[in-house]
Nucleic acid binder design. Structure first.
Lengths: 153, 153
DNA sequence: CAGGATATGTAGCATAGGCTATATTCGACG
DNA sequence: CGTCGAATATAGCCTATGCTACATATCCTG
């Protein structure tokens, strides 16, 4: 099948200005995916600290639904990124940056769930889906969510 | 700081019935993340086929914003999963399953963008965020979105 | 129809995030 | 105060998804 390239098609030699925009969107989605784990762990650790006074790797692993070795490795990444501190055999603690991240994530999560419920999503579905959705909600979108919820109160 | 464990904390020996639910949610979010790439590629390939009559790896790579070698590797995974077929140096084609997936993804994407716009998200933000959000929208949530949009028409 | 530009493919590397299996360390208790 | 179970850490493996560098095929054009 030789030469299907029609002028105006999306083939390589034709410059399509909207293509970079799409690539950017995918790139941003990829970046959000890579931040997802850090956000989830920070939020969970903050929750454990608030609830029980300490965050142990075994608890983190069980709540995340992963093997404890996986939790250890990820917590190592959090340490490298300056979000938590930990002494061997002594539990995990959030740095200031970690706390800030956890607070932001928690607020965003609540707002996403609220928005979903407000448009008619059953609460269980809202909670489940929000766990994935929240990481892709930009500040602008979050502000819009807040505005929408405010307006219908 | 010895022995911070207080009875009633979320420590390992206390069974907390809501914990498995949370682990399940994280597990589902992880699974959605792993399906994300396949969905994006299927949708993009369908788009290229519809627009230009063919889907070439170089076009896929540019639109996805990745190196062409990465696109080749991912297309290989799509082949393994039975979503596309490809002959060497001859472009990529969707199988029936691939087409079905692409159609579902496309419909879901449109609905997500519509919903976001309906609650006040600027169109550009809606398009950008939808790229990540859509993969985490379950059927139940999607139905709720459709109902909400229907109701306000 | 030859050669260079472009597309495609392959190889090898890195990181992230899973897992299991195997040490260690801790802490509680007889 | 020694021992044993639980928590923690480590090692090694796998897959997915990126990348760059290099090799090969295709196709367009002079």
């Amino acid at each position: 099948m030789p030469d299907k390239r029609t002028p105006g098609s999306s083939s390589s030699h034709t410059i399509m200005p909207q293509e970079p925009a799409q690539a950017d969107r995918f790139g941003r989605a990829r970046q959000a995916r890579s931040a997802t784990l850090l956000e989830d762990y920070a939020e969970l650790i903050a929750d454990l600290l608030a609830t029980g006074g300490e965050a142990r790797t075994v608890d983190v692993a069980r709540r995340m639904g992963v093997a404890h070795a996986t939790a250890v490795k990820t917590i190592g990444r959090l340490k490298r990124e300056g979000l938590v501190t930990a002494l061997p055999y002594r539990g995990v603690f959030l740095t200031e940056a970690g706390h800030a991240l956890a607070d932001r994530v928690r607020a965003r999560h609540r707002l996403v769930v609220e928005l979903l419920v407000a448009v008619g999503v059953p609460v269980e579905d809202a909670e489940a889906d929000a766990e994935g959705i929240e990481h892709h909600v930009s500040d602008g979108t979050l502000a819009a969510f807040a505005g929408f919820l405010q307006a219908r109160k």
